[in-house]
């Protein structure tokens, strides 16, 4: 399922030739529309790797959870730190679980 784009937040990476989501998408699916807002041009090809969601500096992208996994309220939100990533996982009942990971970084 393609990511949801918050059109108010998305600034098209300020008229960049290639926005960050476009650069990072392994399937080359994200694009900037004529209105300079990002969109997924082939929704069925997206395999929810969430790279674009992690990359978006404005926090304008959110993954859409496939219905087989969770309805409506269900959400999965990553937050990127310098060397950490935290996940907020909200299931269809609104139950929240959070995980925090330290990346196996290059410097330790």
């Amino acid at each position: 399922m393609p990511p949801k784009v918050d059109r108010e937040k998305c600034d098209g990476c300020k008229a960049e030739k290639e926005s960050l989501c476009e650069q990072v998408c392994p399937g080359d699916l994200m694009h900037l529309g004529e209105d300079q807002k990002a969109f997924c041009r082939m929704p069925r090809d997206c395999w929810d790797c969430m790279s674009c969601i992690k990359a978006c500096p404005k926090g304008a992208l959110e993954t859409r959870i496939p219905y087989q996994l969770g309805y409506h309220v269900a959400r999965l939100i990553p937050m990127m730190g310098t060397n950490t990533i935290t996940w907020t996982c909200i299931d269809l009942n609104g139950k929240v679980e959070r995980y925090q990971y330290r990346n196996r970084g290059s410097d330790d």
Partner: peptide
């Protein structure tokens, strides 16, 4: 101040 630092702080 980078947002990644804020995210770090919150996650800690």
């Amino acid at each position: 101040v980078n947002n990644a630092l804020l995210a770090d702080a919150l996650s800690f």
